[in-house]
Write a protein that binds this DNA or RNA. Structure first.
Lengths: 244, 244
DNA sequence: TAGTGGTCTAGACCACGGT
DNA sequence: CCGTGGTCTAGACCACTAA
């Protein structure tokens, strides 16, 4: 792992432990550089990661401070890693299972080709799953993946976690994601599978996920029950995507 | 403005113009460094910005490529800047106006103190506005701002754009934001003000917005009609916030 | 004014991709 | 193999904060 990521992980851990308490300043960048036997640029890249995660804020001339709810955020991130991802629900570790609604291989549509940066003759998996958390239906996931990037996918894998398979069996590293988020009315399928009524909103997330090296491997749309602790924490640098 | 931001803006402009076509490679980082008479590290910071914006992807060993829908994304961002932010709606520039439902000054709650990093005796504005786009109600915004950070706010300013006031009159620069996004059922107020029914979902965005120097200046909650082109494009580095 | 983070340089070495 | 981006160094100067 890159040095700056290791350092970020270590500092994240210290924040989670309370060694760097909330609302108190981090050591100076120069001191951190000495501590970790590295240059200040590397420390800055580590702190930049933590800023993107919302754990700290930095002010020129003043210093870096651990944010108010940083400890919880760090813990949630930790929990997420443990069971391969669940949005923050403050309920500890939960059991995740899947019902496979659809599993097929076919050629990609134009939209899929564009988003996955593949050509029309490179086949993709077409997957639909209903995901359960503690045996309660949580989210409907429609996933498209290029088979040459994620080979040998089987039904057993879909029952568990695809990301586990990618990171552990294929030894690939997940990178960034681009997402579109919107609210929607529930479709007939949503209501039937997610066990909700026409009055229950759906939170839809469409995303393209990349590997660490920039190769897109997933184009998916997930439809979440609105009341499922399906809260997303995001963090971006260009604001002004909303009014004002 | 920092050199790497200028360079990012310039490249963004070239992408928008089509000078760097979609799906075609950018020049090598070394060449860009020569072109802009700067070091490769600075070029990398510029490209990093564009990656976060979703305009390009980079692969070690292979190069950087302009993404499929980069031109549209760049244009949307441009439009956003022009009229101070409107989510992508593919309808060109729209007229934005406001109805002020509430405008007050008071001491902050504990939650507000934590999110805005202020103490209990530092007063805040408490603002509620209904925002119109082309005379159609679009979003209900509840905004809390510390008065010592954003001084002299007046009703006239609220009618227009607070962000215009912050950037032009106060000469401050907007920085990052942390957001929580969720779907919700419409409240009675939502239905009345946004002119929607109980069956129409709400997209709620809670955010803390920071100035460029890390000072938090806005803690707000906005409730959007689900059908208002209220699509958000976000981009993050730590994935796995969803199932899998 | 002293101390902080923000930015930048001009190199260097490495990991990876494609030939 | 060579060319690419990813990372890192050991400094330097500047912008800003706070006393």
């Amino acid at each position: 792992m890159a040095r700056f990521k290791e350092i970020a992980s270590h500092i994240r851990h210290l924040i989670e432990q309370g060694d760097y308490p909330e609302n108190s300043p981090l050591p100076r960048q120069a001191d951190l550089a000495k501590t970790y036997q590295t240059s200040r640029m590397t420390i800055q890249k580590a702190l930049e990661l933590l800023r993107y995660e919302g754990l700290i804020t930095s002010r020129q001339g003043s210093g870096s401070v651990v944010r108010q709810d940083a400890r919880n955020l760090a813990k949630v991130d930790g929990r997420i890693d443990e069971y391969n991802g669940l949005t923050a629900n403050n309920r500890g570790i939960a059991e995740v299972s899947s019902k496979i609604l659809h599993f097929d291989v076919r050629f990609p549509t134009n939209e899929e080709q564009a988003n996955l940066q593949i050509s029309d003759y490179q086949p993709v998996y077409d997957i639909a799953r209903l995901r359960f958390v503690d045996h309660e239906p949580h989210v409907l996931e429609y996933t498209i993946m290029p088979i040459h990037v994620i080979p040998n996918l089987k039904e057993e894998t879909l029952q568990q976690s695809i990301y586990d398979y990618i990171e552990n069996s294929l030894q690939l590293t997940i990178g960034v994601a681009t997402r579109r988020i919107r609210a929607d009315k529930p479709s007939a399928t949503d209501q039937a599978e997610l066990n909700c009524t026409a009055a229950d909103p759906i939170l839809e997330i469409e995303q393209v996920v990349y590997l660490d090296d920039g190769v897109p491997f997933e184009f998916s749309r997930s439809r979440n029950r609105y009341d499922n602790g399906d809260i997303l924490v995001v963090n971006m640098n260009r604001t002004r995507k909303t009014l004002d």
